[in-house]
Nucleic acid binder design. Structure first.
Lengths: 134, 134
DNA sequence: ATAGTTGCAAACGCTTTGCACTGGC
DNA sequence: GCCAGTGCAAAGCGTTTGCAACTAT
C-alpha cells in the first residue's frame, strides 16, 4: 500500500503539502534534515511553513513511514520502505557508508541473550574513520 | 595525574568553579546533563552561570577529561577515567544499563576487517527495550 | 601585571505551540 | 459543513556569544 493510501486509511488528509513531502522523501536517497526538506518543499508549494514540515514529519514518523535518526546532534529523516540498514559515518571526511542489516545481527542476538535487551538496531549510525581517512 | 594538574600543566587556571565541576563529575556515577550539573554547581558556588558550566564542559571535553554522549537528543557528560563502556537505554522505562567495552569488540573488529572502517565504539548508546519492559 | 576566566545579558538555531483561517473529505 | 490541517507569529529550549569586570598565576 502506498503512503498516500496509508494516510487516507487512517483518516488523515492528503494535502498538497503532504503529497510534496512524501514525494521528496521517496525520490531522495539521502538522509534529509528538516531544514533541507523544507528548502525543497518551499520550491514546490508556495508559502509552506517550517512548522508544517515538522508536523508532517512527526506524523509520518508516528505512522512508521519515516525513520528519524541522529547524526552528530542533527536529526535526519529517511523514508522507511527500503529495508533496514545502518550507516558508517566518517568523522574526518563526513562520508556516509551504508551497511547492510546483517552486520549488526550478531550483536543484536548477543544483547538479547546476555542482557535480555531487545535493541532497536534498525537504523543505527556509527561514527569513526573510513578507510581513506585512517 | 589528577585533572587539576592536567589543567595547570596546560596553562589553564584552577578556579573555584572548575574545582567544583570536576569534583561533582568525579563523585557522580550517572551521566549528567549540562543542566543537572549546573543545578549541583549552583549549590556550591553562589552565582555561577550556565555559560560557565558549558564552557568548562567544552574545555574538559577538549582535554579528553570528559566524554560527551547523546541519549535521545539530550547531551550527557561523563568523566572519562573509568574506562570505556557502552549503554543500553530502554525506550519504555528510560532505564540505562551499563555494558562493558568487550560487548562491542567483535563488531568493531568486523567493521575494520570487512569495511576498513575504524569505528569510534567507546561510549556508545543503544536504544531498545529492557528485559522488564519487553 | 596580564592573560585566562567569569557573570551578565542578549542572541542563537532548531523546534514547538496557540490561534484563527482554510480546504479536504 | 465539519474538523483536520495550515500559515503566521510568538515562545520555547538548550546552547553560544560579546563584553566589561575580575582573579589566579
Amino acid at each position: 500500500m502506498s503512503c498516500n493510501n496509508i494516510l487516507k486509511a487512517k483518516g488523515y488528509r492528503l494535502t498538497p503539502q503532504r503529497r510534496v513531502i512524501l514525494d521528496i522523501l521517496h525520490h531522495e536517497d539521502a538522509h534529509l534534515t528538516a531544514d533541507a526538506l523544507y528548502e525543497q518543499v518551499k520550491d514546490k508549494v508556495a508559502g509552506v511553513d517550517r512548522s508544517t514540515v515538522y508536523r508532517t514529519l512527526d506524523l509520518l514518523e508516528s505512522l512508521g513511514l519515516v525513520v528519524k535518526a541522529e547524526i552528530h546532534g542533527a536529526h535526519v529523516y529517511h523514508h522507511s520502505e527500503e529495508g533496514h540498514h545502518h550507516h558508517l559515518k566518517c568523522r574526518a571526511c563526513g562520508k556516509v557508508v551504508e551497511l547492510p542489516e546483517e552486520a549488526l545481527e550478531a550483536l543484536e542476538k548477543s544483547l538479547l541473550e546476555k542482557h535480555g535487551f531487545a535493541a532497536d538496531l534498525h537504523h543505527h549510525v556509527i561514527t569513526g574513520l573510513c578507510a581513506e581517512c585512517r
